[in-house]
Design a protein around this nucleic acid. Structure first.
Length: 201
DNA sequence: CAGTAGATACACT
DNA sequence: GTGTATCTACTGG
C-alpha cells in the first residue's frame, strides 16, 4: 500500500505529479494520525525551471533538500507563516519536486478541525498549500523526512480517477518565472471542492 | 459575491 | 534590507 522507493525515483516529475492525485498522504504526530486524499499538485522540474528554488543548479542550505534522492519531503516556509509541503523525486542531485497544493480530509478530521480552527464543512480547511500542510500538522520539522518512515508517508488506496476528472492548468503564484509561468504543470481533480482555485480551468 | 490589505519569519543579497 | 511556490478577514456591492 505504501508507495515504495522506486516510485519516487521516477525522472518524469510531470507524470508523477499527475499520478499523485488520488493517493493518500498520512502524517502521524504524537500518536495522532491524520490523512487526506491528494487532490491538487504542481510539478517543479529542477534546474531548468525558473519557478524552482533550484533553478540554474543553485544550491543553498534551504534547497539542499531538493537535491536528495527521491522519497523525502521538502518543507519550507513561505510568506513568513505558511509551510509548503513538497515531495522530492528523481535521482540524487536532480532537484525535481511535486508541490502538494490541496487534500481532501480522510482520517482524523476532528484533529484537522482543531488544528485549523474551522469546521470540516468549510472547504478552506485543507484547500491551498499552506492550509493543507497545516491541516496535516506539517511544519518545518518535517523537512528532509523520509517518506517511507512512520511519521509521514503516502499510500496508494486505489482511488481511481478517469482522464476526464483530471484538469491541467498553469501554476499559481509564480508570475516571476516568465515564460515558465505559463506551462501547464498544475494538476487537480475537477469539481473537487478542496481544490484551491476551482474556477481557473 | 469580488477585491484588497495585512500578517509574518525566514533565506538570501 | 528585501522578497516570498499564501491565507484570511474585511470591505463594499
Amino acid at each position: 500500500m505504501k508507495l515504495n522507493q522506486e516510485y519516487y525515483l521516477n525522472e518524469d516529475v510531470i507524470n508523477l505529479a499527475k499520478d499523485l492525485l488520488g493517493k493518500v498522504l498520512y502524517t502521524k504526530i504524537n500518536d495522532e494520525t491524520t490523512a487526506g486524499i491528494i487532490v491538487e499538485t504542481e510539478a517543479y522540474f529542477g534546474i531548468q525551471d525558473k519557478a524552482s528554488h533550484a533553478y540554474g543548479g543553485k544550491r543553498t542550505p534551504r534547497t539542499e533538500t531538493m537535491y536528495a534522492q527521491g522519497g523525502v519531503s521538502y518543507v519550507y516556509l513561505c510568506y513568513g507563516m505558511h509551510n509548503l509541503f513538497n515531495v522530492v523525486t528523481s535521482a540524487k542531485d536532480n532537484p525535481n519536486a511535486v508541490l502538494i497544493r490541496a487534500i481532501e480530509p480522510l482520517v482524523g478530521i476532528e484533529i484537522m478541525e482543531e488544528r485549523r480552527n474551522m469546521p470540516r464543512s468549510k472547504a478552506a480547511i485543507s484547500s491551498g498549500p499552506g492550509s493543507a500542510a497545516k491541516a496535516l500538522g506539517i511544519d518545518r520539522t518535517f523537512n528532509a523526512k523520509d517518506l517511507l518512515g512512520d511519521e509521514i508517508w503516502i499510500e496508494d488506496q486505489h482511488i481511481s480517477l478517469s482522464h476526464e476528472q483530471i484538469a491541467t492548468t498553469p501554476r499559481v503564484g509564480i508570475a516571476y518565472a516568465q515564460e515558465h509561468a505559463l506551462l501547464p504543470l498544475r494538476f487537480f481533480v475537477k469539481g473537487n471542492k478542496y481544490v484551491s482555485k476551482p474556477n481557473k480551468v
